[in-house]
C-alpha cells in the first residue's frame, strides 16, 4: 500500500536555525501516527511541511502520492488535508461558530461559488461530532480556548479530509473533554480510514492510539515505535 504522507530527507531553516535536519516520516492510510519531542524540536514545523504551508529547502514531500513541491499541487492537495492548529484565535474578528466551521468547506467549494445546503449540512454534522451545536450562533472570539479548539477540529472534519494533521488538539481542554475529543478523533479516524498525524506531549494518547511514533530530537526524526 502506498503512503498518504511521505517526507523524505526534509530540511527546513528559519534564518540560520536548522529546524528540520533530514527528517523522514511515512504514514499510510488508516495509520495513526504520533509525533513527540521537546518544545522547539520541530513538530509543528513538520505538520506545516506536510500540508505545504512551509516549503523545505531540500527533500521530498508527498501527500496522497503527489509531490507538494510542484506548484500546481499545493491548493488541490491542501483540500484533502485537515489541519487543526494549536493556537486559539485572539483577534475580535466577527465570525460565528457555524461560519467558522463552514470555512472547512471553502477549498472544496472552489472560487467564486457560494456554499450550498450540502456544505451547510456537513458543517452542522461536524459541529454535532464535537458537541458544539448549541454554540453555533456564538462569536468565535467569545468562546474559551477549549471551545475554540473544538471549532477548529469541527472545521477540519467538515473538510472531509483524507489526511488529518492535529497540533496538540487538547491543549486548552479539561481532562474530561480531552478524553472525549481524543475518542471522537480516533473514532472518525477509524470510520473514515484517515491518515492521522498527531503532535502531542501526552504519553497516554500515544500509548492508546498510535500505530507509529516518531521522536523528533535535534531536528532529526527517530521511529521509536511501529505496530503493524
Amino acid at each position: 500500500m502506498h503512503h498518504s504522507v511521505e517526507l523524505y530527507d526534509v530540511y527546513v531553516k528559519f534564518g540560520d536555525l536548522l529546524v528540520l535536519d533530514g527528517v523522514t516520516v511515512e504514514a499510510k492510510p488508516d495509520e495513526f501516527v504520533s509525533l513527540v519531542g521537546a518544545n522547539g524540536s520541530g513538530k509543528t514545523t513538520l505538520l506545516k511541511v506536510a500540508n505545504g504551508m512551509i516549503r523545505p529547502f531540500r527533500g521530498i514531500v508527498k501527500v496522497l502520492g503527489h509531490e507538494l513541491s510542484q506548484k500546481a499541487n499545493g491548493n488541490s492537495l491542501r483540500k484533502e488535508v485537515g489541519f487543526v492548529p494549536q493556537r486559539s484565535i485572539s483577534n475580535r474578528f466577527p465570525i460565528r461558530v457555524d461560519e467558522a466551521v463552514l470555512m472547512g468547506r471553502y477549498g472544496k467549494i472552489g472560487l467564486m461559488r457560494a456554499p450550498g445546503q450540502e456544505d451547510r449540512d456537513k458543517a452542522h454534522e461536524a459541529l454535532e461530532i464535537v458537541g458544539m451545536t448549541k454554540l453555533a450562533q456564538k462569536l468565535v472570539h467569545e468562546l474559551s480556548g477549549g471551545e475554540q479548539q473544538k471549532v477548529a477540529l469541527a472545521r477540519a472534519l467538515a473538510q472531509e479530509p483524507s489526511v488529518l494533521l492535529l497540533d496538540e488538539p487538547t491543549t486548552y481542554l479539561d481532562s474530561d473533554s480531552q478524553s472525549e475529543i481524543m475518542e471522537t478523533i480516533y473514532t472518525i479516524h477509524c470510520k473514515r480510514g484517515l491518515t492521522t498525524l498527531l503532535v502531542t506531549h501526552d504519553p497516554y494518547w500515544v500509548e492508546q492510539y498510535s500505530s507509529k511514533v516518531y521522536l523528533l530530537k535535534d531536528g532529526k526524526s527517530h521511529l521509536i515505535r511501529h505496530k503493524e
Binding site: M53, R78, P85, I89, M103, Y106
Partner: peptide, 23 residues
Amino acid sequence: FFFFKEIQAILYDRELALAVGIP
C-alpha cells in the same frame, strides 16, 4: 461580491485560509 468567502477566511486567519486550500 465574487470572493466573499475567500476574503472572510483570509481576514479571519490567513494560515487557516491557506490550510483549507484557498489560494
